[in-house]
Amino acid sequence: MQQYQNMITRQRKWMFFLLALLVLGAGFTPYPRIFLGLILGAVISFFNLWLLQSKVNKLGHAVAKQKSAHSIGTFTRLAAAVLAVLIALRFEDYFHLVSVIIGLMTAYLVIMIDFIYFRFRD
């Protein structure tokens, strides 16, 4: 159980670190539109990551206690991604669409790099 909690903490730390970098980029570089898009995508991606972590934990808890679990929230995550794209399409002057999509994939990058790094280190 400790392994899972450690992984969640590491991933959350990396996501906050990346978000802080993106905020700095939006504030201090001449490309605020691109960085605002990346921030929007990364925030929604962070929500997706948190939702997946909590749903997987709830499912594991329910199975270990021999109870029933409802879902793992796939539809919510898809709807959150659609919401990000709709916001980017509606406010096109503020958010760059391609960077929103790249931002949506931030959590997957974090998960993959974290997994590869810690698998080879252990």
């Binding site: 159980m1 899972y4 909690q5 992984m7 972590q53 499912l59």
Partner: peptide, 8 residues
């Protein structure tokens, strides 16, 4: 814990 990590 291990299985949950793999599933995640």
């Amino acid at each position: 814990g291990t299985l949950q990590t793999t599933m995640f």
